[in-house]
Computed example of a mutant assay.
Amino acid sequence: MGNVRLERLHTGMRWAEGPVWFGDGNYLLWSDIPNNRMMRWVSGAPEGGAVSVYRDPSNNSNGNTRDRQGRLVTCEHGARRVTRTEFDGTITVLADSHKGRRLNSPNDVVVKSDGSIWFTDPPYGILTDYEGHKAEMEQDGCHVYRIDPDTGALTVVADDFDKPNGIAFSPDEHILYVADTGASHTPDGPHHIRAFDVSTSGTLSGGLSGGRIFATISPGLADGFRLDTDGNVWTSAGDGVHCYSSNGDLIGKVLVPEVVSNVAFGGPKRNRLFITGTTSLYSVYVGANGAGYF
Rank of each mutant, 00 (worst) to 15 (best):
L29F: 01
G44S: 12
T203I: 09
R37T: 12
A95Q: 02
G211P: 10
G267K: 03
F225Y: 04
R71C: 13
I33G: 13
K99A: 14
T155G: 14
N232F: 00
M13G: 15
V233L: 14
A135F: 00
N104G: 12
P219H: 06
D24S: 12
V263C: 12
S261Y: 01
W15R: 15
A215M: 04
V157E: 09
Y285C: 12
F169I: 08
A16R: 04
Y285K: 08
P19H: 02
S199E: 09
H143P: 12
P219T: 11
W234H: 10
L127H: 06
Y285Q: 15
P149E: 02
E47Y: 01
G141A: 13
S280A: 15
G100E: 10
I193H: 07
P190H: 06
A50H: 04
W21T: 15
D239V: 06
L227R: 07
V110F: 00
G132N: 12
T151Y: 00
P57F: 00
A288S: 15
T83D: 08
G152N: 06
R81W: 02
V156Q: 04
N247E: 14
D172H: 02
H185P: 11
H143Q: 14
N3R: 09
T216K: 13
P57R: 07
R226A: 14
D129R: 06
G63Y: 01
E47M: 07
G125W: 01
H191Q: 15
R194G: 13
T92L: 08
I217S: 06
A179T: 11
S246C: 05
H185L: 10
G12Q: 05
A153Y: 00
S43M: 05
S58F: 01
Y293R: 14
V144F: 01
S105L: 07
V241S: 10
D249Y: 01
D150Q: 13
D108E: 07
G18R: 05
P268F: 00
E138G: 04
I275T: 02
G266Y: 00
S184A: 10
Y124W: 03
F119N: 15
I275C: 02
N165A: 12
G292C: 10
S113T: 15
W15H: 14
I193K: 10
T186F: 00
T85Y: 03
E131H: 04
C243E: 13
S43C: 08
D223A: 08
P106D: 11
N59F: 01
F274H: 09
L29G: 05
T216Q: 10
V111W: 00
Y244D: 15
I117E: 03
H98W: 09
A195P: 09
Q139L: 11
P34V: 05
N64E: 10
K134L: 04
T83K: 03
D140C: 04
D180G: 09
I175N: 10
G23I: 07
N104L: 06
Y282D: 08
P268A: 13
V178A: 11
A183H: 03
E17D: 14
S201V: 06
A168Y: 00
P149T: 03
I147Y: 03
G100L: 03
